[in-house]
Write a protein that binds this DNA or RNA. Structure first.
Lengths: 226, 226
DNA sequence: CGCCCATTTGAAAATAATCAATGGAAGTGG
DNA sequence: CCACTTCCATTGATTATTTTCAAATGGGCG
């Protein structure tokens, strides 16, 4: 009954960096037991049902967790960007699969070793709790979005989330429109129409298919509110 | 950036009880530091923005966590039934408020004391991680529901979730139709129509406004699938 | 017993999905 | 390096599901 969790180690530019420093610090001990791996576009990290033997952390690139519904609909649980952890919420086996969206490098930790470390060193466990707490809070925000927001509100929130992950006003969209739709509970067409509308109203500008810039941040924030 | 987490200590009748026993066992040490409190209908446990000083566990009754949107829309983050923990995902302050739905008794734990215990005793931390892992997995299931399911699929899933919390085939619905709607991302009217349809097709029967029974479980399970 | 609030039901309106076709980018192979 | 092929994105027209608006029914509580 589990999948993958995304937690940025520097999620929001507007949050105290002290808090984040504490987080990474607590998990620095993990570095010794991780192996670096590289994946190509669309290559899977793991499939739903696989025994959950590993945690991952994204170093470079991007990944997605997803699940197929009986009729072919696809749900994307999370996008993972550099700094995000994958697989923390897995029980025995992964409920979601995970795949690289572009060429991606990750660190792979043995879950068994992490848990052994955590049993000896409370700090590790505390850091894990903290990361999961952040992930849980993010999950709640997303439930609010999926349950109560219109298409435009969802897109605006999504773009602002991505913008917070970079320090310039730019946005990387390594994923396809279909990916975004499956993540936000919308169709590809609705995503495309919303983005077109934002472009034509001068709120965002496009620089290549996978890079946007926010021209009027305040206007975008307004759109996230009902 | 946080609210409340619901984790049943015996969530699914079809899951190994050994796993759950381990969970409660690890937190048995907490019993000494908890205070029992009682709330009346609609009385708040805490409000959004309050300093997050406590964790709670429901003993009897039911509670909900909720947040108001700018235009008056209300989002319910979670329903809490006996055995569920509240407030585990709070950071500095609660992002959601929480209220009793009916007359409810809870245990209130000092968060500071719990964390002090966890720092000394890794088992406590591990139990917390385990509970949050379960909560995170449940959150992912709900995101799938909110993002990709039709009104009837959502209602059917919701009823089955509630049914798993009792051992007879009955379902307690202490909350209003509006509560259910705000929880599932639907309007009160849509909830009412779906329930009426289930009644008229003989899949469920009603025994008073707040108690249902599942007459044809298999048919209900079918409705959760696309 | 009567009032109030939740629920149910009906009809109209709106948002997003679906169906369909075109345009454009990226990647492959000659 | 160019042309071909394929996949992705955009845009338009139509349909469907759910919301919104409105009214009536019913239960619970004082």
């Amino acid at each position: 009954m589990s999948g993958a969790v995304a937690v940025s180690q520097r999620p929001a530019a507007n949050r105290a960096s002290a808090e984040q420093a504490g987080l990474t610090e607590g998990l620095a001990d993990l570095d010794g037991i991780g192996a670096v791996i590289a994946l190509r576009r669309d290559e899977p990290l793991f499939r739903p049902g696989d025994r959950a033997e590993f945690y991952f952390k994204v170093l470079k690139g991007a990944a997605r967790s997803c699940r197929l519904l009986a009729d072919g609909r696809r749900h994307i649980g999370e996008f993972f960007l550099p700094g995000d952890f994958i697989g923390l919420d897995a029980a025995e086996s992964y409920a979601f699969g995970a795949e690289a969206i572009v060429e991606t490098t990750l660190i792979r930790y043995s879950r068994r070793k992490v848990e052994a470390l955590a049993a000896e060193e409370p700090r590790i466990g505390q850091s894990l709790v903290e990361i999961m707490r952040t992930g849980l809070a993010a999950a709640r925000e997303r439930m609010l979005l999926l349950g109560h927001m219109t298409a435009m509100e969802r897109i605006a929130s999504f773009l602002l989330d991505l913008a917070r992950r970079r320090d310039d006003g730019r946005i990387s969209l390594p994923m396809t429109r279909t990916d975004i739709g499956d993540y936000l509970g919308l169709t590809m067409e609705t995503v495309s129409r919303a983005l077109s509308q934002l472009k034509s109203s001068g709120i965002i500008t496009q620089h290549g298919m996978h890079e946007l810039a926010i021209a009027r941040p305040a206007a975008l924030v307004e759109l996230t509110k009902p």
